[in-house]
Amino acid sequence: MPTENKTPEALKVERSTVTKLVITGAPRLDAITVFLEDFGRRDCPIDSNPNYQTAQGKLTINCWDNSWNAYWGGMGPRTVAEFVADCGWDYVLNCLDRGISPTVFSGDALHTLAKKCIVQRRRQQTGRHDWELGELSKDEARNLWHDIDSLRSIESPNECWHQSELLTELFGDEWHYPIDGKAVEENQKFTYLRKVVDAVQQALRQEQQYVVA
């Protein structure tokens, strides 16, 4: 049977305005490439103005082998460059990497906390801190001091359960409470991204001042 020829439907094509910036000279950072993409405005009716429209845009940042991006669908009348420059660094950072924390769990930090616990319990300093258990004898402290080296290899809070017996001897049955938020160290990824965000915002504000001048 002959094949029916169908005229293909026209594709929908939309254009956006893209600005590329290359930022150099930021302390302890490689060159940062920034793409600012403005998608125009979309209808966003509100009670006071049924015809209200809000701008929408996307930010993409590349630095060395790292890349982050964020989209905003409600920037008001601002461009994405103006929006990012106006926002707090912490808000922009969280949009680029949702849920990232300034600290992360660390087996080394847990080991340090365990040493502190042993020393204070051995010296009967429990009143100064929230250790559930009381004084340790000399032999008990020596044995625990030897055993806690295994804590260094723990890479996540979930893995702590594999050392539940040891952690119970140190911190008591509710051991997860004293280590929560204390067995942590600086999150280098967070610190690095903050430096990048600071540099990008500084550059955008500098650009705005240049345009105004």
Rank of each mutant, 00 (worst) to 15 (best):
M1H: 12
P2E: 06
T3V: 11
K6H: 10
T7H: 03
T7E: 10
E9K: 07
V13M: 08
E14P: 02
S16W: 01
T19G: 08
T24Y: 03
A26N: 02
P27F: 02
R28C: 10
R28D: 15
R28F: 09
L29Y: 00
D30C: 06
A31H: 05
I32K: 00
I32M: 00
T33R: 10
L36A: 07
L36T: 03
L36S: 08
D38R: 03
F39E: 04
D47W: 05
N49Q: 06
Y52K: 00
Q53H: 01
A55I: 00
Q56S: 14
G57I: 01
G57T: 02
L59T: 01
I61E: 02
C63T: 03
W68Q: 05
N69S: 13
A70L: 02
M75R: 02
P77F: 00
V80K: 01
E82L: 02
E82H: 05
V84M: 01
V84Q: 00
A85R: 07
G88P: 01
G88D: 11
G88L: 00
W89A: 15
D90H: 10
Y91H: 05
V92H: 00
V92R: 00
I100A: 05
T103H: 05
V104C: 07
H111S: 10
T112S: 13
L113S: 09
I118Q: 11
V119R: 13
L133T: 15
L133V: 13
L136D: 08
S137R: 01
R142W: 06
R142H: 11
N143A: 09
N143Q: 13
W145P: 11
W145E: 15
H146I: 14
D147K: 14
L151M: 09
R152A: 08
S153E: 14
S153R: 13
S156T: 15
H162S: 12
S164Q: 13
L166E: 08
F171H: 06
E174V: 06
H176A: 09
Y177W: 06
Y177N: 11
D180H: 09
D180A: 12
D180C: 10
G181M: 07
A183T: 03
A183F: 02
A183K: 06
E186R: 15
E186N: 14
E186Y: 04
N187R: 05
K189D: 14
K189I: 03
T191P: 07
V197I: 08
V197T: 04
A199H: 04
A199N: 08
Q201W: 04
Q201F: 07
Q202D: 12
L204M: 06
E207R: 15
Y210H: 14
V211H: 04
